[in-house]
């Protein structure tokens, strides 16, 4: 049953939503409108005047092979981050759910990585995989593998994926664990009596019952990999080598604030805005129907 509150008059409800509206206006609507506006101009090299160019910024971007490559990089990156942060989280949650003793300790320890800020997580991983002093790369060297993410594109991608996913595993674990605890025990018992062993039960009963949570995490993690991994990428690879880890958001930053091409940067932001909107609509329209039972 949905409970609705009915207000008399409009002053109180307005006051209640006003703080949120103000925050959205200042930090979302105003910059978004600015970005759309700026994307139609090219400023001069000194930033003193700008010239109206219509959609030229967009035309230029869509024929730029580096920009198109960045799309592909972003897709690879977000798929990998989503997988690497969700699959182990689910596995750990299932294992924690089976525990009778020590589940609380286990849970607490698993949540800790989430408290580490992305940039710091990036530095941690960077240090471990440092090509000269990193402990992991040193052991890899002993095993005969020459780790060098500074020069090797796929290795750089692997490192930023792991560094971005690591903290997220905690976050996802928390949600999966809560969802698992909410699965009625008697349903699992009924399946056990019906003859399903642990993994059979997991795939035919538990996983389908987790699908609302899985879907929610999918959306949240994709959005995370798009926007919140900037710190990690900036500290570990700065988008390199040769732009192999330059995801769209990073390119907005490097073109705008490093390359000083504010018009193109604004146009990229606008494209990103549409992309995320589209992605969200798609996800909710096509997946949501299937996940609710």
């Amino acid at each position: 049953m949905e409970k609705r509150v009915t207000f008399k008059g409009w002053l109180l409800p307005l006051c209640l939503v006003l703080p949120q509206l103000l925050v959205s206006a200042v930090f979302f609507f105003y910059p978004a409108i600015q970005a759309v506006w700026q994307s139609l101009f090219i400023p001069d090299p000194f930033g003193l005047t700008s010239q109206f160019v219509g959609l030229e910024n967009f035309q230029y971007l869509l024929s730029d092979k580096y920009y198109l490559a960045s799309f592909f990089t972003t897709a690879t990156f977000s798929i990998l981050v989503t997988l690497v942060s969700m699959v182990p989280a689910l596995f750990l949650a299932v294992m924690a759910d089976r525990l009778l003793k020590g589940a609380a300790t286990y849970r607490t320890l698993l949540i800790w990585p989430y408290a580490v800020a992305p940039a710091i997580a990036g530095v941690l991983w960077l240090f471990m995989f440092n090509t000269r002093v990193g402990i992991v790369s040193w052991y890899l060297g002993k095993l005969g593998y020459d780790w060098n993410h500074v020069l090797n594109g796929p290795e750089a991608m692997g490192l930023v994926v792991v560094a971005s996913s690591w903290g997220r595993i905690s976050y996802n674990f928390l949600f999966f664990f809560a969802a698992l605890q909410a699965v009625p025990k008697s349903v699992i018992e009924a399946a056990a009596i019906d003859g399903a062993r642990f993994w059979k039960r997991f795939f035919t009963i538990v996983l389908p019952l987790l699908s609302p949570t899985t879907f929610f995490l999918l959306v949240v993690n994709v959005v995370y990999s798009f926007f919140e991994t900037f710190g990690v990428i900036h500290t570990i690879t700065s988008g390199g080598p040769q732009q192999t880890t330059t995801i769209l958001v990073y390119k907005v930053y490097s073109d705008g604030f490093v390359g000083q091409d504010l018009g193109s940067s604004a146009a990229q932001s606008v494209i990103l805005l549409f992309l995320v909107g589209l992605l969200t609509i798609l996800q909710f329209k096509y997946f949501e129907k299937r996940v609710h039972y």
């Binding site: 008697s186 349903v187 009924a190 056990a192 009596i193 039972y293």
Partner: peptide, 30 residues
């Protein structure tokens, strides 16, 4: 023996039906 090997069937207080399956699938599961 595991519950599944005891040749029993159980009806639970809250029915414990599989919510994502149709009535037919619920009955056919075992």
């Amino acid at each position: 023996l595991e519950p599944m090997d005891r040749d029993i069937a159980m009806v639970f207080q809250n029915y414990a039906l599989y919510p994502h399956m149709s009535v037919r699938q619920n009955m056919a599961y075992s």
